[in-house]
Design a protein around this nucleic acid. Structure first.
Length: 647
RNA sequence: GCCGGCGUAGCUCAGUGGUAGAGCAGCUGAUUCGUAAUCAGCAGGUCGGUGGUUCAAUCCCACUCGCCGGCUCCA
């Protein structure tokens, strides 16, 4: 073995180093200090500590905060600092696990009582002291047996349990000051490398997420390389709070959920209903154009229907209890699919009829445990923008492709432009032959590839009855929401004995594709409210224009203006109150009305309106012709590349 | 469902073991006004519900309903 090794750096540069050189040294030219933004080294593709000695030829690249791995390492070290702080402030707290998560980290402790806000302040202060002390963070390895003994003697029983489940015979520990934690690593070099850390909140959480296990006390926190990054992050959290659809729903009078009605059940107020109507009209119109046939189905049906579909067997926990009607049992519907299947079955079908696409805005009811309900996002009664496509196996790819293009078109119309696409493959528990799984999964994959979709594979995340494609959208605040789903189902056609007559005159079984574009109308509406912060685009705004007369003597002219706008198809209100225009503007702004037309002496004389937009810009005085053209242009939606779809 | 927090006027929120206040909204009147709040007056509440402790409960206790933050699950 030679005394030197060859290190390959990111740009393909190589350098010859002595054996044992540290990763951090290899990443610098040996003189300038290591870049402050580098927190670990990726050696042959694996993230390692910066003080890892290099013993073989290797490729090496720096890991920065800007990368997902960098954030994970940075936050993982942060959570260790927080854990150390907790142990110093509350020595009787026991360690369990503390991973980085999106946007921060948490650490779960076993402790005799919940942490109070005052506790969290003390913990944060202690964490800051630990950061300032800049303690070196060092890695050591121990045999499993030694590690078990070590943590057992410290009374850290949860750590012992974790170690016992590790398969390797050696485990790694990380130490900073007096604090030692079991950890795979890697970590930043010292506690001082964490510059800005905030302890955010605490909540109960079960050991290993199982409610039969003891309740632990979880503390959430976050950290950033600079104080200003942290402040920006906290400002974003404030913005998320400001845009909360529950808050805006109340302020803008869109919907309510009332005690008397029942939790998880939505009352749509007139303004929210109008927006919903506009969404649904658009949806129906587009579906008809895309070759869907729209159907309606009842809200209850014989329980037997759901025995056939398998819902009683697999889904009962999420269903409302059945009710007895004239000595037979009926069930409030948790899904629309059996109904669409019954429509399919109402005739004999030929291969020539396929594909058949049934769409429905079908309201379903599901029992959700009280603790999980959340505004419009998680409710007990919601409307799926559901459709079921019955097709021949050879039509799957084309149908799925059509659905994907359609989905993109619809989501873009609602102002979303960033998407993440996932293909989920066969889970462990599944029905149907491997052949069917392979065939349909590759059809989905082909549809994605031919459509030039960037996608990731989620292995084993498919539904038990078939593979699926999920699409997540990113909203204006960068949050990902899963709305759209396309699922292949060969189970229900089997259960219901669906068939069609093939070219060969023989009976064949169709494949079903379940698909939803928006998911749930309620949830999608909630996402839209937050995405737009309540400031809906012109085509969705409940009131598009508010005409604001300056005094009562301009009322007649204001009404003439409003009539002209209404004739052109706009939703207009006149603020007829005897109030100052400043007040009227303020309230129209708060209601997030897209356009305010101020009319006074000057406007009524020359048949103009003075145009103000809700963002505060004043477009000055315009004639009615000019203003109608202006808002007409605003109605033409900002869309992505595909504005029209082939039918 | 579980852990923690919360529930006072339509809304946002003060407050106390001796049955309650503010601002906004509402109503009435005055003001006739030029791009984010004109002024004055009036009215408004079995303090989430039930039970208990107490001479006395909105306040303390128990139960219950709901909401919020999590856990879990999902659209």
């Amino acid at each position: 073995m030679s005394e030197t090794i060859t290190i390959t750096l990111p740009e393909g540069r190589t350098k010859v180093c002595p054996i044992g050189m540290l990763a951090s040294e290899a990443l610098t030219d040996g003189q300038t200090p290591l870049n402050a933004d580098i927190f670990a080294a990726k050696i042959n593709g694996v993230c390692m500590d910066l003080d890892t000695p290099l013993s073989h030829d290797a490729s090496i690249e720096p890991v920065r905060f800007s990368s997902p791995e960098g954030k994970e390492i940075y936050r993982h070290s942060s959570t260790h600092i927080m854990a150390q702080a907790v142990k110093e402030v509350f020595p009787s707290a026991n360690l369990t696990i503390g991973p980085p998560i999106e946007g921060g980290f948490y650490y779960d402790f076993s402790f005799e009582r919940p942490f109070t806000p005052e506790d969290l302040e003390r913990i944060e202060q202690k964490a800051h002291e630990i950061m300032q002390a800049n303690l070196p963070i060092t890695r050591m390895e121990m045999s499993k047996a030694d590690a078990i003994q070590y943590f057992a003697q410290k009374g850290e029983t949860f750590k012992v349990e974790i170690i016992q489940q590790i398969e390797d015979q050696t485990v790694s520990l990380y130490q900073q000051g007096e604090f030692v934690d079991l950890c795979r690593g890697p970590h930043v070099g010292s506690t001082g490398r964490i510059k800005a850390l905030k302890v955010q909140s605490s909540a109960g959480a079960y050991w290993r997420g199982d409610e039969r296990n003891p309740m632990l006390q979880r503390i959430y926190g976050t950290s950033f390389p600079t104080e200003s990054d942290l402040q920006a992050h906290l400002a974003r959290l404030e913005e998320i709070k400001r845009r909360d659809h529950r808050k805006l729903g109340k302020e803008l009078d869109l919907f309510s959920i009332q005690d008397e009605t029942g939790p998880g059940l939505i009352l749509w107020h007139p303004k929210g209903s109008l927006i919903r109507l506009l969404i649904e009209n658009f949806w129906r119109e587009q579906h008809v154009q895309q070759g869907y046939e729209l159907v309606y189905s009842p809200h209850v049906a014989r329980l037997d229907l759901w025995k056939t579909s398998g819902h009683v067997e697999f889904y009962q926990d999420s269903m409302f209890a059945p009710m007895m009607v004239e000595s037979s049992e009926y069930q409030l519907k948790p899904m629309n699919c059996p109904f669409h299947i019954m429509v399919y079955q109402s005739h004999l079908r030929s291969y020539r009829d396929l594909p058949i696409r049934y769409g429905e805005l079908g309201t379903v009811y599901r029992y959700e445990r009280s603790g999980v309900l959340h505004g419009l996002m998680r409710v007990r009664g919601f409307t799926q923008d559901d459709a079921h496509i019955f097709c021949r196996p050879d039509q799957i790819e084309a149908e799925v492709r059509k659905v994907l293009d359609f989905t993109m078109f619809v989501l873009r119309r609602f102002g979303f432009s960033e998407f993440e696409v996932y293909l989920s493959t066969r889970p462990e528990k599944s029905v149907g032959s491997l052949e069917k799984w392979d065939q349909t999964t590759s059809a989905l994959e082909a549809a994605l590839k031919n459509g030039k979709f960037d996608f990731a594979i989620d292995p084993g995340e498919g539904v038990f009855y078939g593979p699926k494609i999920d699409i997540k959208i990113r909203d204006a605040l960068g949050r990902a929401w899963q709305c759209s789903t396309v699922q292949i189902d060969f189970n229900n056609p089997e259960r219901f004995g669906l068939g069609y007559t093939g070219e060969d005159g023989k009976a064949h079984q169709p494949i079903m594709i379940h698909r939803a574009l928006l998911g749930s109308i309620e949830r999608f509406f909630g996402i839209l409210v937050e995405h737009y912060g309540g400031a809906f685009p012109l085509w969705l705004a409940p009131t598009q224009v508010k005409v604001l007369p300056i005094t009562e003597k301009h009322l007649d002219y204001a009404k003439t203006v409003a009539d002209q706008l209404r004739t052109s198809g706009y939703r207009v209100d006149v603020d007829t109150r005897n109030e100052k225009v400043g007040l009227k503007i303020r309230e129209a702004e708060k209601a997030k009305t897209p356009y305010m037309f101020v009319v006074g002496d000057r406007e009524s004389q020359n048949q103009h309106v003075s145009v103000r937009k809700r963002n505060g810009t004043n477009l000055g005085s315009l004639s009615m012709t000019e203003v109608l053209e202006l808002i007409q242009q605003d109605l033409v939606l900002k869309e992505g590349p595909s504005t029209t779809l082939p039918i």
